[in-house]
Design a binder for these strands. Structure first.
Lengths: 120, 120
DNA sequence: TTTGGTACCTACTAAATGGTTAGAATTACT
DNA sequence: AGTAATTCTAACCATTTAGTAGGTACCAAA
């Protein structure tokens, strides 16, 4: 006798949530994608934007994201070096996830100032 | 001269994405919420549903989720013990995130069988 | 010649996370 | 009496993940 309104199949290797989390579940991954967003970001800009990340983690994540075709990397053969990162089509498809994450945080976690928002 | 189409403020402590990730970013957290979903799940059911999780991680996460008011815990004073977990109102608000995660995984990561899905 | 700026890499260390094993509690069933 | 069932705890260990510190490369400007 099931009382479940919505029963999901077990979360094994073929579980789409697990698959996404394997790719995107790192501490910094979604925050980096969020910062690049629909724009063009240089390495140095990202370092400043993602407060608190170490250089090692940033390039490590960036390399991983490029490898997994979520991020495009454009290198200008200049001195000093200039590298631009943008989201690929696949990377852009992660933005709805990030948006929901931002929405949830905004509505429930981050203290809002003023803006008498009557719990809507 | 900015070429960014969409510029986000830096991701510091007040970044809603970061706040959400701090709460939900664990290896198992979102998968557990996904499995409970809109239903009622017992501890043992969850253990079977979230394939590969250890008992320790499961109760540890469950305790953390109860503490953070994402999950309700109903204990029946029976022997053998019976405990039911459901999402709170706040917990239910995480489902859109999980849905997007599932959607992304389904569309891009998990191999689909049959269903000649012409890249739509 | 030294310093600065940009984008990395590598080796080492530290911290966070996760896994294993054992056990407690209590009742029913054998 | 012994075993099973269910939920949960605690101690200990292994692995994974992240942070630190240092270095490379190249050219420009001081």
């Amino acid at each position: 006798m099931e009382k479940n309104l919505k029963i999901n199949p077990p979360c094994d290797d073929s579980c789409p949530v697990r698959a996404s989390l394997t790719l995107l579940g790192g501490k910094w991954t979604l925050m980096i994608l969020f910062q690049i967003n629909e724009g063009i970001m240089r390495y140095g800009e990202l370092k400043r934007a993602v407060t608190g990340i170490s250089e090692k983690m940033l390039i490590q994540e960036l390399n991983m994201l490029v490898e997994n075709r979520l991020v495009n990397k454009k290198v200008y053969p200049e001195i000093p070096p200039k590298v631009e990162y943008t989201l690929t089509d696949l990377g852009l498809k992660t933005l709805p996830i990030v948006d929901k994450l931002a929405e949830f945080g905004l509505d429930n976690l981050v203290k809002k100032v003023g803006l008498n928002a009557k719990h809507q």
